[in-house]
Structure formats: structure tokens, C-alpha cells
Write a protein that binds this DNA or RNA. Structure first.
Length: 244
DNA sequence: CTAATGGCGACTTTGGGCAC
DNA sequence: GTGCCCAAAGTCGCCATTAG
């Protein structure tokens, strides 16, 4: 059974690959896009540093907390000896600029004119939620906001509400390429062990592209079915692929 | 039903004080 | 100077609730 991320990996090469990320029985090509080739075959659950705290929330809620619910953690010993011996790299200037640009653009989006979310936006959000992460970082939220043309606040609220409704599935604590804390779906880590802003952006663009393309495909099929004959494959829909 | 808001608790970060 | 302890402030996510 293929996951949506596997299917996503096919997107660039399979022109009419199945769009529905929930169609796990899809028979699309197994050939992955070079962009989405797994970066490391040695997938290792870098579990839960003791502080993967909110994971303790999750596990307690999912019934797998062995210590009982909401047990207080021992107080931090000293701030000079961090509990996570991770290497916190500095984001590159390019990354900082990119993040700032995304935040600026995201904060400029009007939240009233585009509510509620349309099918396309919902599908992209659900795919990220189901297949990549329930807890996107701020830059990722901004990226989704820009691509989906929804405000940062709307994207945040959507994920918050979705977590309330659909708290299921595993979450694995890990870190980004610059050492920032990240909680991903296991399938996402199988796809790429070390996620970065740019990798997420690539994946998100592919999800968005597939969604829009399939929407257009569906629309065209409806037109064909209704007219019975001619199919004017869309001049319409091109507005969906907005400039990014 | 979805989107949004605010209160709350858990956790992290920061910085001062103290002993060695 | 270094290491430890502690409290305050900040951050994050959950939850209940409300509005449309």
C-alpha cells in the first residue's frame, strides 16, 4: 500500500497519476521524482527526547502514555546544559530572507475574503496534516498561507481545529536541517529523514499542483459528460495556478 | 459544520543570586 | 569563572465555547 507521499513522488513523472492522496490503492507509477527521492535509507526513529513534551500530551491522549497523564517533568537543571544535545545551526541568510519574505506575504493576505476554505485548499491542508505533520512550524505555516492564499492565522486555526477533531496517528519528534524541533508523521520521515524549509516547499508545491491539476481534470470530465461530445480542455482553471 | 477566540496548563527560555 | 538553583516571562498546544 502506497502512502500519499509515495504517490506525490510520482507526480512529476506521471502525467495522469491519481490525485487523491487518500487513494492508497492507486496504481500510479512507482518511479519517484528525483526531487523526492528518499535522502537516507537508514530511517531511525529519533524518538522522543525526554522533552518531546507535547508528545507526552499526544501519547497520553492516544492511550500509550505509560507514566500516566500529565505527569510533571522534573525541573530543568540548568539552562547552560541543554537537555537536547542537538546541534543548533544558524539558518543561512538566504533562509532568513526567504522566511521573512514568506511571513511578509502571508501577513498581507486578507482573512475575510477567502473563507471558508475551498476544496483545493482543504485537500492540500489535509494531505499535509495526514501525511507530513500535525504541527507545522511557523515558516511552513507561512508557506502554506502564501501558496493557498489564506492568512497565517487561518492556517494556524485550521491545524488547531483539525488536531481537535482528528487526533490520530503517530508523531515522531525530530529536527530540521538547522536543528529546529519538528514533529512529523512517520511516513514523512520515511520519505526524507532531514526535512528543511526548501524540501517542504517542494513537497507542498507538488501537492498543490496535483490537486489543482486533478480538479481541472475532474471539471473537464464533467464538461465532457454533460456535453457528450466536445471537450474544451480548460482555458479555465489557469487562474488556479497563481504565480508563486 | 467550520472558523475563530480566549483561558488555561505544561513546558522552555532567560537572567539573577548563590556557593565553590 | 563556573555550575547550580530558582522564579518570572514567554511560548505552545489543548480545550471549551461562540459566531456565522
Amino acid at each position: 500500500m502506497k502512502s500519499s507521499l509515495d504517490l506525490l513522488a510520482d507526480a512529476a513523472t506521471s502525467p495522469l497519476a491519481s490525485y487523491d492522496s487518500h487513494d492508497y490503492n492507486s496504481s500510479s507509477s512507482p518511479t519517484p521524482s528525483p526531487v523526492l527521492l528518499r535522502r537516507s535509507p537508514h530511517y531511525n526513529y529519533r524518538d522522543a527526547s525526554p522533552s518531546a513534551s507535547s508528545c507526552s500530551h499526544q501519547s497520553s491522549e492516544s492511550g500509550s502514555n505509560t507514566n500516566g497523564a500529565h505527569q510533571l517533568r522534573p525541573r530543568k537543571k540548568a539552562h547552560k546544559s541543554p537537555k537536547h544535545p542537538r546541534v543548533q545551526l544558524k539558518p543561512s541568510p538566504e533562509m532568513k530572507m526567504r522566511r521573512k519574505e514568506l511571513m511578509d506575504r502571508a501577513s498581507g493576505i486578507d482573512s475575510l475574503s477567502n473563507s471558508p476554505a475551498n476544496d483545493c485548499q482543504l485537500h492540500v491542508l489535509r494531505t499535509v496534516f495526514d501525511e507530513i505533520t500535525m504541527y507545522p512550524t511557523e515558516p511552513w505555516l507561512a508557506l502554506m498561507a502564501v501558496i493557498l492564499r489564506r492568512s497565517l492565522r487561518q492556517i494556524k486555526n485550521w491545524f488547531s481545529n483539525e488536531r481537535q477533531k482528528n487526533r490520530w496517528g503517530d508523531v515522531v519528534s525530530t529536527f530540521t536541517d538547522v536543528g529546529e524541533r519538528l514533529r512529523l508523521r512517520p511516513a514523512a520521515i520515511e520519505l526524507c529523514e532531514l526535512w528543511s524549509d526548501s524540501f517542504f516547499e517542494e513537497v507542498l508545491m507538488i501537492i498543490n499542483f496535483r490537486t489543482i491539476r486533478h480538479q481541472r481534470w475532474d471539471r473537464c470530465k464533467i464538461i465532457v459528460d454533460e456535453s457528450g461530445s466536445d471537450s474544451s480542455l480548460g482555458e479555465d482553471g489557469s487562474d488556479d495556478l497563481h504565480e508563486f
